[in-house]
Amino acid sequence: MTDQPGFHPAEGATPDTFAPVEVGLYGVSKRFADQTAVDDITLRVHEGEFFSVLGPSGCGKTTLLRMVAGFERPDAGRIELDGVDMVGVPPYRRDVNTVFQSYALFPHMSVWDNVAYGVKRKGVKSDRLRKTVGEHLELVRLSQFAKRRPAQLSGGQQQRVAIARALAAGPRLLLLDEPLGALDAVLRKELQMELMRIQREVGTTFLYVTHDQEEALVLSHRIAVMNAGKLEQVGYPEDVYERPATRFVAGFIGTSNILDAEVSGVDGRWVELSAPGVTRLRAVLHGEVRHGQRVAATVRPEKVHLYDQAGEPPSGWCVLNGMVRDVVYTGVSTQYVVDVPGGGELVAFVQNTRRVDDAGAPGQPVRMAWDPDFTVLLESADD
């Protein structure tokens, strides 16, 4: 095993687990012509994790996955599987299997034969082969479809066959490249639950690539957020959602309100901020700040409470004045879009915990308020 370098800044903020490192990427880069697809990424995936790489189209996440699989070779850096450097090792000699969005099933083979394919290639025969295939068809709840061809199955069933085939060969690592991307919304949610159950039952390390923020939050033990070939943040789902490290993460994962502000002082554990239209804006102090420093502050819409002019927010809360512009009833909640001084807008999600006869009133002046514990400081507003 080679010596492991220090943590990448984005990765270093993530508390380590006690499990051994299954996949280690150290200073990995990949270029195509004049474009850098993956830019100096260091990342560790631990044994038994369901780890997701999340980012928009073109951010480099699939290229990263293909390098781990051996389909692409990095221009720089090291890729280790179970501590062994895999750069230059062909895909068939890596203890890795991949599940693709397109399923890639053999159309002329039955479900049973598709699942048995990789097991047979490992030299497994007779009773052990039947037992292995049977167990994996049962795992994905398709035992009754063993004799069918892929064309006789639904999209969700075909994807489950692809997962069973990949797992039946017993890889240390399963790579999944947007495997639910071709399914409709309802089926995607069903398959998400199935993937969680399967991963818990088999204990295989899953490295999952997706552009779907909700999917990553639901499925993952940890998430790496990528943008333009670089790591923006690595953390547990609640970390990247509740405490985004950068402006990109705050805007990409869910809906977030971002305010450009200036540091006006420090009061104990609080950083006091000033911004147009703000009565009070503060955040928990982390690290060093200086008076007059430009920063970006963010708060999630579901943390924001709305008050009319007669209402009084709790003492010490952040308070901002504005005018309701749009009101959208979404069933579970009502979304309020509020114009604030300086030409910006903030959004508040108000839970519909009682019958709603009047969804709201555009043009109404309101005060938006929230607990300052939910204010998160991001990178400099000048960056």
Rank of each mutant, 00 (worst) to 15 (best):
L180F: 02
G251V: 02
L183H: 05
V340C: 04
H305W: 12
R222Q: 05
R355A: 09
A359Y: 10
E178Y: 05
A250K: 11
V161F: 08
V87F: 05
N227F: 08
T279P: 00
T330G: 01
M193E: 14
L81W: 10
S52Y: 03
M86T: 14
L217Y: 02
M109K: 15
Q35D: 01
R294A: 12
P372K: 01
T132V: 15
Q192D: 00
G70L: 13
V337E: 10
G170L: 10
R130A: 15
D3Q: 14
V87L: 03
R280P: 00
D260F: 09
D358M: 08
R294I: 10
G77S: 13
V45E: 10
P237W: 00
S52D: 03
K125E: 14
V96Y: 10
A182L: 13
D85G: 08
D260C: 07
A369D: 04
A224Q: 09
Q157E: 06
S126W: 05
R160G: 04
A369T: 02
D383I: 09
A228Y: 11
V89S: 13
R44C: 04
L65S: 05
V271S: 03
Y307P: 14
K122W: 01
S102Y: 10
E272G: 00
E11A: 11
Y208C: 03
D40L: 07
R93I: 04
H46L: 02
P91S: 08
Q192K: 06
V271D: 06
F206R: 11
M86K: 06
L65D: 11
H108E: 07
V304N: 11
Y117N: 04
K303D: 14
R325A: 02
S57I: 06
A261C: 15
V266L: 08
E138M: 06
M109G: 09
R160C: 07
A166G: 02
E11H: 08
A275L: 07
M67L: 09
A369H: 07
R325V: 00
A185V: 11
I41W: 11
S110K: 09
D371T: 05
D85P: 00
D373F: 15
G12S: 09
A69R: 03
A33G: 03
